[in-house]
C-alpha cells in the first residue's frame, strides 16, 4: 500500500507541530526553544529533529536553571545537548544566587518568582529572542485552553487575555514590532496521553525519574519529595524513608511531589495514568495557591 488513507491522531498531531516549528524558523530571526528537560520538552526536541532533518534544528535551546532541579535532570540535559550538538543556553538569576534563594527557607512563592519568573525574563531580555517556543498544552489547565498557538507578548513579555489575535486555519500571524515577541506552543493540541503514547511509539529518551524506583523521600508540605542532596533540612532528612515512587512532572525537587508507584515501564506508566484519578498538576505545589493562579502568572509573563 503506497498511500495511507487517513493519518492516525498522533501522526496528525506530529505533522501539525512540525508545521508550527517550521513556521517559526522560517519567519523569525532569533527563535529559541524552552528546554525544561521534562517529557514535553523531550517530545518537542524530537519533533524539532524531525522537522529539520537532515539538518540540526536551526534554533537555540534555553534552560532556566533554578539550581534546585533534580540532579539527574541536569546530567540528562547536558548529555542530550552534547549528543545532538544543540546550541544550549543556560541561565540562572544572579540575584537569586546572591540571595541564596531556597524553597525551604524562602518558600515556593518567592523561589518561583525569583528563580523562575524573573530569571526567565532576564534570559529572554538578554537573548533578545523574537519567538519563544514552549511545551505548554491546552489540556493542562483551564486558562490554557484559550491560549493561542502563536501568542503575542508585548515588550514587557505580558499576555493580554482580552486582546488575543484571532487564529484561523493554520495561518499564524507572525507579524510583530521590534522588542515584541511571540510565545509559540507546538504541543497545544496534545493531551498527556498523546505525549506518553508518542514517547512510547517513537522510543523517545526521557529522564529515569519518571519511572518507579526505590527512592529516598521525606514528607513535606502535604506531599513527598526526593532527598536529592543535603540541602534538604537536616530535621527533615532524619525522617527519610525508602519508597517505590516516581514523578509525573519534573521541576525543582523540593516543589515536586513524588507519587507512590510501581510503574517502571512506559506501558505501565500509561496504564497508571489512565486509571489514576488525579490530574498531572496535582504534584505541582505552585498551582494550589488559588483558583486563577495560573491565569495571573501568565499575564505576568510566566509560561
Amino acid at each position: 500500500m503506497l498511500t495511507q488513507e487517513r493519518l492516525t491522531h498522533l501522526k496528525q498531531l506530529e505533522a501539525e507541530s512540525i508545521h508550527i516549528l517550521r513556521e517559526v524558523v522560517a519567519v523569525f530571526e532569533n527563535p529559541v526553544m524552552m528546554y525544561s528537560v521534562g517529557k514535553d520538552s523531550s517530545v518537542m526536541l524530537h519533533l524539532a529533529m524531525k522537522a529539520f532533518a537532515p539538518a540540526k534544528p536551526p534554533l537555540k535551546f534555553l534552560h532556566v536553571d533554578t539550581l534546585w532541579k533534580f540532579h539527574e535532570m541536569i546530567a540528562f540535559r547536558d548529555r542530550r545537548a552534547r549528543e545532538l550538538g544543540l546550541d544550549l543556553v543556560v541561565h540562572t538569576n544572579p540575584k537569586g544566587i546572591a540571595m541564596d534563594i531556597s524553597p525551604f527557607t524562602h518558600g515556593s512563592r518567592v523561589h518561583t518568582e525569583v528563580m523562575k519568573t524573573e530569571a526567565l525574563k532576564q534570559a529572554l531580555d538578554a537573548g533578545g529572542y523574537d519567538a519563544i517556543i514552549g511545551g505548554a498544552r491546552r489540556d493542562e489547565e483551564k486558562s490554557r485552553a484559550k491560549e493561542r498557538i502563536f501568542s503575542f507578548r508585548d515588550q514587557h513579555h505580558r499576555w493580554d487575555p482580552k486582546n488575543q489575535r484571532p487564529e484561523l486555519w493554520s495561518l499564524y500571524n507572525t507579524s510583530i514590532n521590534k522588542g515584541e515577541s511571540v510565545r509559540v506552543f507546538p504541543l497545544s493540541n496534545w493531551t498527556e496521553l498523546d505525549i506518553w503514547q508518542y514517547i512510547y511509539l517513537e522510543s523517545i529518551e526521557i529522564p529515569s525519574l519518571y519511572f518507579a524506583k526505590e527512592r529516598e523521600v521525606v514528607a513535606y508540605e502535604g506531599t513527598k519529595i526526593l532527598v536529592d542532596d543535603d540541602r534538604v533540612p537536616e530535621a527533615l532528612r532524619k525522617t527519610a524513608t525508602k519508597e517505590m515512587v516516581r514523578f509525573r512532572t519534573l521541576g525543582c525537587y523540593p516543589l515536586t511531589g513524588a507519587i507512590a508507584s510501581t510503574a517502571s515501564t512506559l506501558p505501565e506508566i500509561i496504564q497508571e495514568m489512565l486509571l489514576s484519578t488525579s490530574s498531572e498538576r496535582e504534584g505541582r505545589l505552585i498551582d494550589k495557591e488559588s483558583e486563577g493562579a495560573m491565569e495571573r502568572k501568565k499575564i505576568e509573563g510566566y509560561f
Partner: peptide
C-alpha cells in the same frame, strides 16, 4: 469548561477554547 476567572464571574464564555477527549 468555562475557563478564565473574569468570565466565570460574568457567567459567560468569551473566547474560543479548545477541549479534548477520546
Amino acid at each position: 469548561v468555562d475557563g478564565l476567572q473574569s468570565e466565570r464571574e460574568q457567567g459567560i464564555t468569551i473566547d474560543v477554547a479548545y477541549r479534548f477527549f477520546a
